[in-house]
Write a protein that binds this DNA or RNA. Structure first.
Length: 722
DNA sequence: TAGAGAACGATTTTT
DNA sequence: TCGTTCTCTA
């Protein structure tokens, strides 16, 4: 039986899975080297052969997507009965879950706490700025927020931060930070950083709590370890302290979130931190890309100084050279990509097998337009999230107030939504009253009668609003809460009356929200409003978008591309000022450029079969045309791996003109036949063609999803089915 | 209080 | 240039 679990692994993977004794384990996992496979197999191995209980395992990821994927793989590997008891969650999810049980041990919080997103945070910072007398908009709330966030990642509480504040701006931040924190507490709210920081505080200051979780989690696994910040690393170290097995998996070359506090030193110094206890396994065999793509990726990333020396290898084919297209301008760039997609699609490549990556979200527009014009279905991955839509935020704000009456930020959002005649002045009076009486805004709304400055007509309106929250049971189901709000506010009727296309879209979104809530309730063993809202707060995009179903070209930023793979990849805007980005160049530090180089590396290593690097000589920027030069990263790829083309010299298009599509090969092969290839396995014929005297059969292989052109006179294909 | 024009500012963003 | 946020006025 052991063999069955370990059979599908290569030697290093197997060793890593079986290395159970000795606490610290670090897997230096290159792109496409099967790390999720190792993590899941390791969990299965612990459960099956080391008698570990599933309750004792904690697996932490960074994204919900990764967590879900891991859960699914575990389900198939060890069965749902066992896998559901393994704690698999994101860092923030893990912390939220712990805090949901323990937070009343921290001063000023209750278990009904709300998680504030970036929008909420910005409102709070603006309030805090006003409070300390900088309400004139001189300071950018987002800049202040990012300083506060960074401070929290470094465990700097307001007092500690104030003592190190040096220049003018940080001194302002030092003034705002404590007020910001007070406001959060008054709202019974935590921001994303607080989830981590408060958990760490809880573990540090409450030995009983620490002991409980240390005993519980005897085996801890951390995915994407290169993306952990100091706080996250401290949390897992703490939990793993006694005997705990800490297994981290990561790749320093794929660390691209330094701007969010990720600290590459965590992975570079892991061995130092754990001394002789640390065992490092490098996973260097790549199962994803062609040799050429892998070599190109390496030739770029090797120029970084802050990295562990390693080089991926593969048994895959050499493949095509990297295609570097020099476009005249941004529309030529978009046209080229679309033309390539069209002609490859005509050869049988699915739209979903392509991907277009760009550095900045603004770049997506021209590609959207070009794709739309060419009637090619596409999909923006990770764009404006479903939960960021206005109508969804409004309705969820109602639910948030129901759950946590102290959440004044949400209350303020909805007090006049839909419009009910409670204006800014009235709201300000309510806020002032709350401040004077040292009560929450909700309490102030309740006691509106005591505010003389508010006219009796408006008082009635405020009372009518307040009534929405009367007589709600504590354990109201999220769906019932939503129905109650929709009914009490006539939100849908309001939209229907607007009779616009936009309103129609909003109504559809609300319908989607209803089904999302229903789905949550049927999936959850104990659905509560607080738990639902937590799920929403910690989910970026609606994960129910079935990417497998629809055949669309995905468009995304290089950041969003991490963890994914596609047969045909276009990286666009590979120019100085985009990649590396102007900001990073202006920073003039080695570290900033190295991060951009890693971003480029991540993009390159997504490609399985063919990679296109596209750059334009000129580009319209903020109005006028700008000259652009190819990225320095392109020149880091040696000549034999890359083929430079432009509008007049396109090798693949040229080749096509000599191709002639035919209905059947003389040997009897035809389209849609299922065939077996000695090396690649089962596949389906998508095209039969002739170039000069030779026949070519294009086959799409099931296992890899790759398209290959096979010469049937050289390779033995077995016809399996029709 | 809502809606229209001015003013601003434009990397990336797992949670 | 263009999309979002803010401010002022009807």
């Amino acid at each position: 039986m052991t063999d069955k679990l370990l059979n599908s692994l290569n030697d290093v993977q197997r060793e890593a899975v079986q290395h159970v004794e000795g606490p610290a384990l670090c897997l230096l996992s290159g792109a496409g080297s099967g790390k999720t496979r190792v993590i899941t197999h390791r969990i299965a191995y612990l459960l099956k052969y080391h008698n570990i209980s599933p309750f004792q395992i904690l697996a932490v990821t960074f994204t919900n997507k990764a967590a879900n994927e891991m859960k699914e793989r575990l389900d198939t590997l060890i069965g749902e009965n066992v896998s559901r008891d393994v704690w698999v969650a994101t860092f923030h999810g893990t912390c939220a879950r712990i805090l949901r049980r323990e937070i009343d041990k921290l001063e000023g919080y209750t278990r009904a706490f709300t998680i504030f997103d970036t929008t909420d945070q910005t409102v709070v910072v603006k309030d805090a700025l006003k409070k300390v007398g900088y309400g004139d908009g001189k300071y950018n709330p987002r800049a202040i927020l990012s300083h506060i966030s960074r401070a929290k990642n470094d465990f700097l509480k307001p007092v500690a931060y104030a003592s190190i504040a040096s220049d003018h701006f940080t001194n302002i931040v030092a003034e705002v930070y404590p007020i910001y924190q007070d406001l959060l507490r008054q709202n019974n709210a935590l921001d994303f950083d607080d989830l981590l920081l408060s958990t760490l505080e809880l573990l540090d200051d409450h030995p009983n709590v620490l002991k409980y979780y240390q005993r519980k989690f005897r085996y801890i696994l951390v995915d994407e370890f290169q993306d952990t910040n100091q706080c996250q690393y401290r949390i897992v170290r703490r939990l793993a302290e006694p005997e705990g097995n800490l297994c981290v998996v990561g790749d320093d070359d794929q660390s691209i979130y330094a701007f969010r506090g990720a600290d590459i030193r965590n992975i570079l110094n892991f061995e130092k931190d754990y001394g002789d206890d640390a065992k490092v396994f490098p996973l260097e065999q790549n199962y994803r890309s062609t040799k050429n793509i892998l070599d190109a990726a390496w030739s770029v990333v090797r120029n970084n100084k802050a990295r562990k020396e390693k080089r991926l290898w593969t048994e895959n084919d050499e493949g095509d050279p990297v295609i570097c297209y020099e476009a005249i301008n941004e529309s030529d760039e978009a046209n080229y990509v679309v033309t390539q997609i069209e002609s490859l699609h005509a050869e049988g490549v699915d739209y979903a097998d392509f991907a277009i990556f760009y550095r900045t979200t603004a770049q997506s527009r021209i590609f959207e337009e070009a794709l739309r014009a060419a009637n090619i279905p596409y999909q923006i991955v990770g764009g404006v999230g479903f939960y960021d839509r206005m109508e969804i935020k409004d309705l969820l704000a109602y639910l948030r107030v129901m759950c946590n009456l102290n959440d004044s930020i949400s209350l303020r959002r909805i007090i006049n939504v839909p419009g009910r005649g409670i204006g800014m002045k009235t709201v300000q009076r309510l806020i002032d009253f709350a401040a004077n009486e040292r009560i929450s805004l909700f309490e102030s709304v309740k006691r509106v009668n005591e505010i003389p400055q508010i006219s009796s007509g408006i008082k009635a309106k405020v009372k009518r609003f307040n009534k929405i929250f009367d007589d709600l049971s504590d354990d109201i189901l999220p769906s019932d809460a939503l129905y109650h709000v929709l009914q009490a506010t006539k939100y849908l009727e309001n939209l229907e009356n607007q009779n616009t296309l936009e309103a129609q879209g909003r109504i559809e979104n609300i319908e989607q929200l209803i089904s999302a809530i229903t789905e949550y309730e049927s999936n959850s063993s104990a659905p509560t409003l607080a738990d639902y809202l937590e799920n929403v707060a910690l989910t970026t995009d609606i994960d129910t978008m079935e990417t497998d179903e629809a055949d669309m070209v995905p468009l995304m930023t290089l950041h969003s591309a991490k963890g994914l793979e596609f047969p045909f990849v276009f990286i666009v805007g590979v120019e100085e000022y985009y990649l590396p980005h102007k900001r990073s160049i202006d920073e003039a530090t080695e570290a900033a450029i190295e991060e951009e180089r890693r971003l480029c590396y991540v993009g390159i290593t997504r490609a399985m079969e063919r990679l296109y690097l596209v750059h334009a000589n000129s580009r319209r920027m903020y109005g006028d045309s700008e000259h652009r030069t190819p990225s320095r990263f392109i020149s880091e790829i040696p000549g034999h791996l890359i083929k430079h083309v432009d509008r007049y010299h396109s090798p693949f298009l040229e080749a096509e003109s000599t191709y002639e599509e035919v209905s059947e090969d003389p040997m009897g092969y035809h389209v849609n036949q299922i065939v077996h290839h000695p090396q690649f396995g089962r596949g389906k014929i998508t095209k039969v063609s002739r170039m000069r005297q030779s026949m070519y059969i294009t086959v799409r292989f099931n296992r890899t999803g790759m398209m290959k052109q096979v010469d049937p006179s050289l390779t033995q294909l077995t016809i399996l089915d029709y």
